[in-house]
Structures are given as C-alpha cells and as structure tokens.
Design a protein around this nucleic acid. Structure first.
Lengths: 342, 342
DNA sequence: CTGAAAGCGCTTACAG
DNA sequence: CTGAAAGCGCTTACAG
C-alpha cells in the first residue's frame, strides 16, 4: 500500500524513522549549531530511512520557505539556440553551462517570455524569474526599464556586455571594446593607413557606442563614418569618395558583406572587424579584428552573480559590480601595410 | 513606507483593492465557474491594483499549491552546450527552444547533476526535477534505472531516441534507423555492391542495435562487421581482407576517420554513414547517409510531453507514447556504382 | 536533545 | 458573490 507513488515527504520519512518531521529537516540540512545537537544514532536512523525511500526534497517548498534554490536564470533578448545565434551565444552558453556545473546550479531559460517588437520581455504576468536565485542577461540591446526594475527590486542579476542605459548601477561583465578599437587603430596607423572608413549599423548599444567613441578620439588616422543597412551597393563609391585605404566594420558578418560588395575593387584594401573574428575568413585570409574571451566572460558573470546572491542587498556595496575584461587584437591577414593595388 | 522592495503578494493587492486575498487569486486565474461569479467591477478593481503594482505570482507557491509551472526540464547525459556536442544536440535544442516558446514554457536545464562515470545522474539528493512539470531526456545512452524510476513515479517524461533498456514502457520519440539502414543497403545493392564492411563502435544503445539488426537481416549484399576503437591503422587491411567495395560506418565522424586511414587506397571505395550527414564532406564530396528530422523530433517530443503532463496518470493509456519518425536517405556523392579503381 | 507551531505565498473546497 | 480556513512541503525560531 504505497501511499502515492513518487511523492515521499519528510513526514513520511519521520514516521519511518520514528522522529519528528523537524528532525528530518535538521538532518537533511546538516543543521548542527549551538542549540541543536542531534545524536549520531538518530541522525543515522534518519539517513537510513531516506536512503531506503526515494525521497527528494521538494524544491518549491524549499524555495517558499526561503532557501536558495541553486537555480540561475538565463534570459536572452533573442532566441539563444538557433543556428545563427550560436555564433554569438554559443561560447557564452557553453561557459555558463560549465560554470553552473561547477557551482552545482541548474539553469532556467526563460523561453516563455512573450516577444514584443522582436524582443523578449523579461517581466510579464507569469514570469518565473523569482524561481531563480539570480539571473544572467544576454543580448546586444537590453531594455532599460527591465534593468531599472531589477535593480530596484534588489534581484541579483548580471548583464553580459557593458551597460549604460540606466541611471542605476547595473552589474555587468563585458569586453573593453574601446581599448581594443584604439589598439587596432594604432596598428593601422603603424601600417601607414591615414584614411579609414568605419562602417556600422548605427545600433544603439553600449558596445556600439564604445566603438564609435574610440574611433572618434583616434589621433592617428582620419576616420570617416558611414552607416550601412541591408544595401551594400553604395560601398565601392563610398570607399572611393573617402579615399580610404582600410575599411573597418562593426562585426565580421558586416565585413563579409562589404568584401562581397567590393569584389575586385577591394583588392589591396585592408579590412578588419571591431569584433570577434574567430573562424571568419575573407577570400581565404584570416580576418583581422579581435579575440574576445567569451568563455571567461561567462565564468566571470556567474561568479559575480553568485557573489551577489550570497550577499545581503545592503552589504553589496563592497562588490565591484562592473567588470570589463581585456580582449586582444587578432592581427589576421586582412589588415596589411598601405600601398596595395589602389 | 514600501513594505519590502520587490515582494508584492496577493495579500498586498487584496488590501489595496479592498477585497480578500482569495478574490485576488480568483481574478488572477480567471476562475469563473458555476459557484464563483465575480462582478466585473470587482474584477476591474483588482486588475488595476495589480497593474499599478509590480506583482508577479510566486512560482514556488503556485507549484506547491498544486498548479502547473509551465516549466519543462531538459536533462542531457552529457554536457549539451560544448562546441563538440552542438553537432548532435544543436538542432534538438533549437527545436526544443522553439517548441517551448510556442507552448509558453520555460526550460530548466539540470546542469547541476553530479557526474559519475562520465555521465550525469538524474536522481540525486538535491534534484530539482520536481520543479518541472515534465522532462525531456537526451543522450545516446541512458540509464535504465533512471527510466524505470521515472515510470514508476508517474513523472511525465519523454526520451529522445528509441529506448528499450527497460521492461516498463518508456515514452520516446526517435528515428527509425532500422528502416533507413535497410533503404541504404538496398540502394547499395542496386549500385552493384555485393560485399560491404560495416564498422561500428560496439556501443550499447538502442539505435546502435537497430543498425546492427538491420544490417544482419540484409538479404542483398553480404555485410561483414568490424568494431573500431581509436586506432584506425587496421582499416585498409580489413577492407582488403573482406573484399568490400563499400564501407559503412556508424556515424559521419567515423567515416571521416576511416577515409583518412584509407588514404589513396580508398579511391573507388564507396562510403556512407548510417547517421545524419548534413555538412559532412569527404574529399570534397557530400557524404552519403541519412537526413534525420531533428527539429521535428524535438517538436514531437515536447508535444508528447505536454500530452502526458495534461493527462492524469491513470488515463494515459490512450496515448501513443512510442513514436518513430521516418528520416530519409541522403544519396550524397560517396556511395557510387561498384567498379571504381579497385 | 527534540517536537509543536508558525509561516513562506499560493489554490481550492467550504461556508456564509 | 466573497471571505475564512485548510493545506501544499518545507525551514526556522521557540518551547520544552
């Protein structure tokens, strides 16, 4: 007469072991302080009862009673697991999975969040956000209101990528794109480039602004800016007009499109992406750009998140919540000395 | 005097709206049956109070009170998000994410499960399994005890891939590798191959057995079997010995290794994988093998899981819980008519 | 050393 | 039509 398959509770264990349910809880959680002292004999009895049953603590009840859940939320502003998004999210997710493994945490992906204007909404009527002890946010652009609210509610979270869309200080772990951009410009200058064309998508994200700001304060080469959309027909003209000997673009895909649009006219022109270039080649040559430590970002983000989770809101002041990691310039083969065919 | 940031409860809403907490719950859940009839005015008052607050239902409490959580578990016997595993898991995870999105469910990845003997354990002291309404299991090999226990506990779950390691009937959605193998052998026969070498890893998984069984009952060509490990030095000898004009292997990676080991001696030899071959090429030619509908498997698995979740255990009898989907033979370029160079 | 009690935030019979 | 009460399974003061 099994009471109900698959639903053993502490009360049941207590009955078997002949103790109170409280004691079972104490044993399970290794509570062993000044005023609670459970003799090994009792402890052992409870342990055996648990082992012989299929007892597992109900995580919902634990959570309700105020304990950590060992569940970390993962919120992505776009679908994370599509083949296209894996290029960007893949290394991050991999790093997150590994970090979660070693922290003993499960990962809750908020795939249910309703999509509005092409992006998911974090807060909605049925959000399971609170089931997680904390949350990692991923995405090129984030919603400032979401971030404000998370801060206001003292909910532990960490954004991946630098954030500046709020007044409130948002915890983040990101890459120092400004520094990388500066370094790449210096390199271009060394190679003799005096006029560079920077093509970007005019996106309103902090990292996009970081690149633009770094480009704007370049003291070596003269950098012309151009916004591109989906049409690359005007690219050759732009290059000619500006007299650029090198074209930089916001990301590797953009460089690929630009190279395609340039065709033979691109021969002799240097190319580089102000972003991760791993695995990208242009006409057989390794694209110049950056190497960004994305696995490390993920690990660092989860470490920070854990810190926030295990610290009371009013004591988080001591934690350095905004962290920029340094990437490195990937020289590649497409940024070469000025003086090619054109 | 905000009571505590980020923790608005139904009681709070009730106070504001001047109703009982029960009524708030009723409104939230649209309970509107024979004996409960809440006037629109009241309903509206509650709605407004909710909208003006930042109320979100505590999922832990809902769950404890017996409601569905809209959380689906995802358990993988190996790490799912590594670059290497993405080849296999990627399309499945993508399909799962999409299905979860359209079902309005969140996804709980059990990354915390302790690893024993290279594989994760589903059941452990702190498993958050029960937080999910149901669970999808992924992995080439699964633990029979895990499956038995899930069945015994009436926990809704679906395995991806055919299962046969238990007496109890395990719900699964898989590919009919037996049929595919038969079809590929027929094709080989049509192309004049009379002696085929099938190289496999001697894995003890249902799909591995399905392939072997189909190979064994081939009535056309004569198929020799060989187990390979990490050493492929003996491959050329084996081919010569058996007089095979075609070599089949368990998966695309294995074919690649074999092709490498054969080198020039492989010229004229037909090659095929008894598995998904998308994206695999051998010496520039598209590898022959199968196309398996992995996105569809994921969708079907989640649909079945939803069915199980929303059906009481004693009424699940009517559900067809074991589903094999048909893939298709990918002709490719490496399975050609007999009579090449050798 | 150990148990009875209150409480976490919700849902759902059960009374008005 | 609406509220007071019990209960989901757990944890943690608080009494013995």
């Amino acid at each position: 007469m099994t009471p109900k398959p698959g639903k053993v509770t502490q009360r049941e264990i207590a009955r078997i072991a002949g103790v109170s349910q409280t004691t079972v809880s104490m044993v399970l959680n290794d509570r062993d302080g000044s005023n609670i002292r459970i003799p090994d004999a009792t402890r052992e009895r409870v342990r055996r009862a648990i082992e012989q049953s299929t007892y597992v603590a109900d995580p919902a009840a634990r959570r309700l009673a105020g304990l950590d859940n060992k569940i970390l939320g993962v919120f992505t502003y776009e679908s994370a697991l599509t083949p296209e998004s894996m290029d960007f999210y893949g290394p991050l997710l991999n790093g997150i999975e590994r970090a979660a493994e070693s922290l003993g945490c499960d990962l809750l992906f908020f795939t249910s969040s309703p999509v509005e204007e092409g992006r998911r909404r974090l807060f909605h009527r049925q959000t399971r956000l609170r089931l997680a002890d904390g949350c990692v946010l991923l995405g090129q652009q984030m919603d400032g209101d979401d971030l404000e609210r998370l801060v206001a509610e003292d909910f532990p979270f960490v954004a991946v990528g630098r954030r500046d869309e709020t007044d409130a200080p948002v915890p983040y772990v990101g890459i120092d794109y400004g520094a990388l951009t500066g370094a790449l410009l210096d390199r271009a200058a060394e190679l003799g480039h005096e006029r560079i064309l920077y093509m970007h998508r005019d996106r309103n994200s902090p990292t996009a602004r970081d690149r633009l700001a770094a480009v704007a304060r370049a003291d070596g080469p003269d950098v012309a800016l151009a916004v591109v959309g989906d049409d690359f027909a005007g690219v050759p003209g732009l290059v000619a007009e500006t007299g650029a000997t090198a074209v930089f673009a916001e990301d590797a895909f953009l460089v690929e499109d630009i190279a395609l649009a340039l065709g033979d006219e691109g021969a002799g022109l240097s190319l580089a992406a102000l972003a991760e270039v791993r695995g990208h080649r242009i006409g057989g040559r390794a694209l110049s750009g950056f190497h960004t430590p994305r696995q490390q970002i993920a690990a660092e983000a989860l470490a920070l998140l854990q810190e926030l989770i295990s610290t009371a809101p009013d004591e988080r002041g001591g934690i350095e919540i905004q962290r920029l990691l340094q990437g490195e310039v990937a020289l590649g083969d497409t940024l070469t000395a000025r003086g090619g065919a054109r």
